[in-house]
Design a protein around this nucleic acid. Structure first.
Lengths: 238, 238, 238, 238
DNA sequence: AATGAATGAGCCTTCATTCAT
DNA sequence: GATGAATGAAGGCTCATTCAT
């Protein structure tokens, strides 16, 4: 009941008819698609169905509108995609697979990723004043969860600093697809993309790769034809 | 004959005094620093010490100038940084370490990465028509080498498609630092950055992480102090 | 009964809390300081502590507000500074000195002249519809008194038309300091300003200059060292 | 020969067809008529028959255009109206009359005063950065001449400081007509304006008034028909 | 009666581009 | 071949004004 009541949530207050929110949404999409410079307040206002002076009225200037629209984007995103929640006793391997799958889903979406994600990506790649808040409110919480999973996975045998570094290795594998997706698409044959690089397969791969790197799971190349370093590991990733 | 005759190599023809090259160089720096929209032809011309109409005279319009400046950037880059070359018999682990170190060096540079790299990154993140050529001339050759190393490493036990996917995992780990460096800097304590995330340490980490994932090398958490990695681990990934 | 009944004196009705009066006062100051164009209704409303639409509500539009604020200014000014009143038998020379002193005081004020005066000056320099009323209610009464003094001074030897012309000569001498004070300040060395151009000294000078011009008083250059044109004038300005 | 050759006079170089000069002229008129704020660069450009971006191209911005147009105005004015030049032996009374006549002519012009004068007046009344130069190049030279004439007139019996003060009294009488002409027109009956306040008559009056004040000439009320108003008035102004 | 929300017009400025030379 | 002069289009922003409540 206390969550997202129009009264206590100024952003979405008054629902989607609030001109403020309409502008924020239109701005987010324009900024995400064209970038800050190329997006025009005129187009934003037209898309939002409001007068050209509305941006100045509600936000002061284009700069402030951008900041607010980034904030709006990650706040909305936090609301849309809840943090994963596991039952007690869930093995960390499962958690990692869930987390990675969730992250890839969030980044790549099903089909075209939502503008909120594309806007956040722009902010990550070309940070402005909006970035710190984005990091603290959105990115760090996720990263902290990931580090906790990794910690559980290695049973305390790595320092927090090392865990963070490993965390970045995990994130980096996913991030490449999001940030450099087009280049990946040019580098990899198309049918291969459709088979081995779907969100699902990708999550499997990143999880397996990372688990193997941590010594928690089979190395990627099937060990069977080789003199395995760890012979008695019959399980594989289903 | 094939080397840099003015006729067949229009870019560097006439040396660095060629107005064309001066514009290309100035444009590359402006575009790299400010992005396509925010960079102005006036500033570019001023920086290049040429007339304001020179861009249109030499390149037609701003769009074409951008394309040429991206091409100029990666062509120059290819020339500056030679592909690694190993003696026969070099173990693939060494090659991988060399390659990763080289890639990180190239991406992060010592100190500020050169404008060529920053411009190429922009093109990777927000591809235009210039991207395909960039991929074919610059990125794919490197990627092909990486895949070959990985192939050698796993002794043919992975398909080319799988090798490519592994290659992306390797690249992604490095790429994150380049593309989202600022966010990484906010996520990781500063002194930790200076200790564990230097180009050298980073290359070591990425190499070790990837080798371990491929079953070639020790897993990151040293297994030694433990009896076995998972002697009686009841849990597993169901 | 004739004094300030709300019904017959709309301006000051309801006292200084009346939003109308607050707006009028704020508007007068803004207009006086920045001029009609540069003053904004927003700033006026903010300064008056009223809603941004109040100006249109109370006065129709900016133009009308300006007119009313000029009227308000001179009406208030008439109330603040009473016309001089002399005892019967006061010599006209004294009256002239009083009048001039009073006028300079009114124009230059002690320190910064009040906004009412600055606003009236703007209207004098760049007349609008508000000017005629300003002239009739404020300027002409003063001017009429001056002409009467001059008439008394010359004992009817000048026509009314000539008296008016002389009146303008007197007024002009003072007006220059008010309207072109900055230029005067650039033309005259600063220490000289502080010594010979104080309101008091100025009033003395203008009075003496004008009296001399009318043959009522010593000419400015001491006549003694010269072969005086009017030998029998024993007095001098002590 | 050396005066005003296109080559050594950048302002009027290339004659009146120079777009720069056309803009300057159009701007001067707009600024003179409407003031800085109310004048628009659009109207100025339209009036000058140039593109709307020309102001920015030639002058940077509106502010700079204003400064240049004020400068242009007084430079042109200096060229148009030469300083008076007297034959040796000309009595100072004649010089004063000439000077005053010249000044009034310059201020009031025949018919509508030229825009240059109206623009300069605006600058005098509401000084900006352009004012100091206006004072030094245009106003001070004239004022210096006036002071010299007065000095000659009183044969050294007044200090320079006193002469300057007298000079301001002379100037003030003329200035009133220029700066507050409309109010004067409301104060004085129209037929009177046409008879006693023509440039000629005005010059006569101001000259006579001032000469009389300095004891050089008959006081305004002809003394002849009267014995004396106060034959033995020993007192002066207390 | 009085106001907060919203608007339409217009202004100054910037920028890529063109054209005569 | 190369440039300085000049332009057209558009952008962000400000401001007085209106309208429903």
């Amino acid at each position: 009941m206390a969550t997202a009541t129009p009264e206590n949530d100024p952003v979405t207050a008054s629902g989607p008819d609030d001109p403020r929110v309409r502008i924020l949404s239109a701005a987010g999409q324009e900024f995400a698609e064209k970038g800050y410079e190329a997006a025009t307040v005129r187009d934003i206002c037209t898309a939002a169905g409001v007068n050209g002076a509305a941006v100045n009225y509600y936000f002061g200037d284009k700069q402030r509108l951008y900041l607010e629209s980034v904030r709006h984007a990650h706040q909305e995103r936090v609301r849309q995609v809840p943090q994963p929640d596991w039952l007690p006793g869930t093995p960390p391997e499962t958690k990692l697979r869930d987390f990675v799958g969730n992250m890839i889903e969030r980044m790549l979406g099903l089909g075209q990723p939502p503008w909120q994600v594309r806007l956040m990506l722009r902010e990550i790649l070309h940070p402005t004043d909006a970035c710190r808040e984005l990091v603290e409110d959105y990115i760090r919480p996720h990263f902290t969860i990931l580090v906790a999973i990794l910690d559980e996975l290695v049973a305390g045998s790595l320092s927090q600093a090392e865990l963070r570094r490993v965390g970045l290795s995990v994130v980096g594998q996913c991030f490449l697809y999001r940030a450099a997706g087009d280049v990946v698409g040019m580098l990899i044959p198309e049918r291969e993309i459709n088979h081995l690089h779907t969100p699902e397969k990708l999550a499997d791969h990143v999880t397996a790769f990372s688990l193997a790197a941590l010594g928690r799971g089979e190395p990627l190349p099937k060990p069977s034809p080789r003199v395995s370093s760890r012979p008695a590991s019959p399980s594989g990733q289903a």
